[in-house]
Amino acid sequence: MKHRSLLLKLLSALLVFGAWEIAGRIPVSFAFPTFLESMQALLAMTLDGRIFVAYAETLKPLVVGIVISAVFGISLGLWTGLSQRFDWLFSPVFIVMQAAPLAALIPLLVMAYGIGLTSKVFVVCIMAMPVIVLNTSGAVRNTPSSIKEMATSFLARDRDVILKIIIPAASPVIFSGLRLGISAGFIGAILAELKITPTGVGDIITYSRSIADYPSMYAAIFSIIALAVVFLNLLERFENFLFAGNNRGYASD
């Protein structure tokens, strides 16, 4: 049965890439290269090392932005989750931010911080931070009251309740918030490279488009999507491995 699932996945990949190949051969548009052409371009980029240079550039704002968002987001989330006053003060801001199209702030960030790394880091942060904060504070608030009560009845001090009950109980949700934040961070990093200044992978995309080298453009896009998906998938697996018992400990599953 395990083979069936894998086989179907391969079959479905074959169908989609096959359709891409055929659509490229017709061609449906002058700007639609075939799958094989795109993969050739990707191979060429990999061999001459261009893609590695590009990713070194692209991942810089992404990593810096994610680290900043994680540190600030989780601390702020813990804080709002634990204190009613800070909840009252901060939660509405992040709820609005979560619903709002924050990408609209980009032109403003560019004016304020120029077109360099700072702006790009900011873009990643505004995309990634709200979901991290909201997940963290929600998880803290939703700690099952019965285990908090248990700890209190066994004489836990406030510090024990936070360190030994709330944080371990909240960590699966905090972690998945982090994963969603990274996913949004990828969107932000690429948006920044396409909108602010073309660097890294954004540069390959923009430059190839301007010289009508469509296979290279598609290859770059394919690679960044593949990278994001593979990375997020690994993260999710790691998460499941890490918190396997946590999720099954409750009755509803």
Partner: peptide, 28 residues
């Protein structure tokens, strides 16, 4: 059957940085 064939793609696009696809849409 359809689930096993389509679901992986849905999950891919759910977490993919879709901004990267906009340039493709622009040229197409």
């Amino acid at each position: 059957l359809l689930d096993e064939m389509i679901l992986p793609w849905v999950n891919i696009f759910l977490s993919a940085p879709l901004t990267a696809l906009v340039p493709v849409l622009m040229v197409l």
